[in-house]
């Protein structure tokens, strides 16, 4: 009766089932591509209309540079053409895999800037993920199934701080205490290739993982608690299986699903956190590349970085979404 009185959604009567299945599978991919393209287009036009004139910045501010010089530089950089023409030129270059050259350093390709920076940033994120997983899963398993209120409260406080603390603060505190106070790790900077660089990665990675570790910890603790109450686990314990073996061989693998899901969702946060932490520690990653590019109005570099980070994040989200649907078909809307 209710649906007769109120307007309801129109019934779908068209389309084959196979067609709909295909659309459902493709739809996240299509959306990902569309979003990446949108990011690129919007960035391109926004920075060229709103950010100002790179030629002025390159010549060194308004200190009496003649308009002819500025105009000549603009022509050289291709800035005098209409926006649409510039955009098409950019697209054409993209299709050849050419991201352009930096305005600031015309000899350097955007690609090299981006790749060098990305190498550092992704190394940072990778190590941070490793730390988060090891600590999060380890402590989560330890805390599972127990009813120790003191421990629970410590975890609660840690979760709150980890969630709410800005990455910069955590980094600063760590630098102050560990690097400057205890002299255990360098306070910033970068080494000359691996394995020397690992020592420069450690503190930043811990800083980045501060946010993710409590989340993984709670997820693992909840899930492990559930698994421990399942019949097979209780039977195994009744048969005399040691707690350690029970945890490692039976409970832990069951936690993998939720942990992966959480990681998938948090990846873009992690990357942005990493960018900020890089700047605090002075690491030569994407963060530094981006700030210098924005400061000098180096359009191609800005576009390249935004495109790369946007694409990476979109791809990661895509993988996460596809993985979730594969693991649990009910999750598909």
């Amino acid at each position: 009766m209710s649906s007769a009185v109120l307007p309801g959604p129109a019934a779908r009567r068209t389309g084959s089932r196979a067609g709909k299945r295909l659309a459902a599978i493709l739809s996240p991919f299509v959306q990902a591509i569309v979003v990446t393209l949108l990011v690129m287009v919007i960035t391109f036009f926004l920075i060229r209309t709103l950010l100002g004139d790179p030629a002025v910045v390159l010549i060194g501010g308004n200190t009496g540079a003649s308009p002819q010089r500025i105009a000549a530089l603009r022509a050289e950089l291709g800035l005098d053409k209409p926006l649409l023409v510039q955009f098409l030129g950019y697209l054409a270059g993209l299709l050849h895999g050419d991201l352009g050259n930096s305005f600031q350093h015309p000899g350097t390709t955007v690609a090299s800037v981006v790749v060098n920076g990305a190498g550092v940033t992704f190394a940072l994120v990778g190590v941070a993920l490793l730390i988060s997983c090891v600590v999060g899963i380890g402590v989560g398993l330890l805390a599972a199934g127990g009813n120790r209120p003191v421990f629970d409260n410590i975890v609660r406080v840690f979760s709150l701080i980890g969630l709410a603390a800005p990455g910069a603060l955590v980094g600063l505190v760590l630098i102050l205490t560990v690097a400057l106070g205890g002299r255990l790790f360098p306070a910033g900077g970068w080494g000359s290739g691996y394995p020397d660089s690992f020592q420069y990665l450690f503190l930043p990675a811990v800083t980045v993982s501060f946010w993710l570790t409590p989340i993984i910890l709670r997820v693992v603790r909840t899930r492990a608690g559930e698994v421990l109450h399942e019949p097979f686990a209780e039977a195994a314990a009744a048969r005399g299986m040691s707690r350690a073996r029970l945890m490692l061989r039976h409970v832990a693998p069951n936690c993998a699903g939720p942990v992966l899901a959480v990681i998938g969702v948090s990846l873009s946060y992690l990357i942005s956190g990493a960018v900020i932490v890089e700047i605090v520690y002075g690491l030569p990653g994407i963060g530094r590349a981006m700030t210098t590019a924005v400061g000098s109005l180096d359009f191609p570099v800005i576009q390249g970085i935004v495109l790369l980070t946007g694409a990476v994040v979109v791809v990661l989200n895509l993988i996460a979404e596809v993985a979730t649907r594969v693991i649990d078909p009910r999750a598909a809307r």
Binding site: V39, I47, G52, S268, Y269
Partner: peptide
């Protein structure tokens, strides 16, 4: 959905930087 597909932080930073 399209707006949500943009990673939150990237969106905020990009917009804030663009609006200057």
């Amino acid at each position: 959905d399209a707006t949500m597909a943009f990673p939150y932080i990237v969106l905020v930073i990009a917009l804030a930087a663009a609006l200057g």
